[in-house]
Simulated assay, not measured.
Amino acid sequence: MRHYRSDEAGIPLPDTFSLLTWNVHKEMGRPPFDKTLQSLLATGTPELILFQEAVLDTHTAEHFPGYNVSAAININLRHRQYGVLTAAKSPIHDTVSLKTNRREMHIATRKSLLITTHPFENGSELVAVNLHAINFVSAAVFIEEIDRLRIALQQRKGPMIVTGDFNTWSRKRMEYLEGFARSIDLLPATCANGHHIKQRFSKPLDHLYFRGLTLLTAEAVNTGRVSDHNPILATFKR
């Protein structure tokens, strides 16, 4: 796990807050991506940002001024790492990172997820899960890894958001994900412009689930070819 600014600095989450979730396809630091990110942040300054395939290096914090940032690494190179990244205007009180037990076929990497907690103004906390699910493996292995997340979350109480790139390109994967969500009382966010969410074999890969919150808005935003996925912007009320 890597922390950029994850101390007690920041303010609690307001009762109404927004988030941005996005598989950024290792594009951070490239001018087209950086310009698009700044444009997205300027539209509403989301309190939470959850990236998959984030670039983790000495310049990462520069993308998120005013945010606390934690990341779970799954690819570790000499001068740069990649993984899931969660940035928050609020303090990050607790972080748990998990890597898949299994490795992906062909490229032999593990995937990572990050669980963080964020205080609300009334003292309660939001659990945020940022996940990039394992790919290029059998449905049985996918199920095994998602079940590890279910076990990690089943004792967690209160408001929760689970989001990321789930690689749900098969019926069996999609059905198991839906069952996982029901098992811990998560609801799916239905996005406006949902056709902008990346699909494979006519099934969406990116998802946003929640509980203990009211979903006010959710939209998939077409960012062209900045990444091979498009971001989802959502607003919730506690």
Rank of each mutant, 00 (worst) to 15 (best):
L13A: 02
Q155V: 01
F236L: 04
I11Y: 09
L126D: 06
L187G: 01
K237L: 08
S18I: 04
P91R: 06
D147K: 10
Q199V: 09
D228V: 07
K203F: 05
L177S: 09
L131T: 10
A61R: 10
S112N: 09
G123S: 06
L126A: 07
H63S: 08
P119S: 03
S227C: 13
T95E: 12
E178Q: 14
I184S: 05
I92N: 06
S90A: 15
R238N: 12
F210L: 03
R148V: 11
E53M: 03
L215M: 13
Q38N: 15
E219Q: 14
G10P: 06
I184H: 07
T58K: 15
M1Q: 11
T21F: 06
L20V: 11
H132P: 00
D15K: 12
D147N: 14
D34Y: 06
S39Q: 14
A181S: 13
T235Y: 01
M28P: 01
K99G: 09
P14N: 02
D15Q: 12
Q155R: 13
V129C: 13
V69K: 00
L153G: 10
E104T: 03
G10M: 04
L50N: 13
R78V: 10
S6A: 15
H132G: 00
M160G: 01
Q154D: 11
Q81E: 15
L13P: 06
R182D: 12
A139C: 07
A42R: 14
H132I: 00
A88V: 00
R156A: 01
R103A: 04
Q199P: 02
I107D: 10
L50P: 05
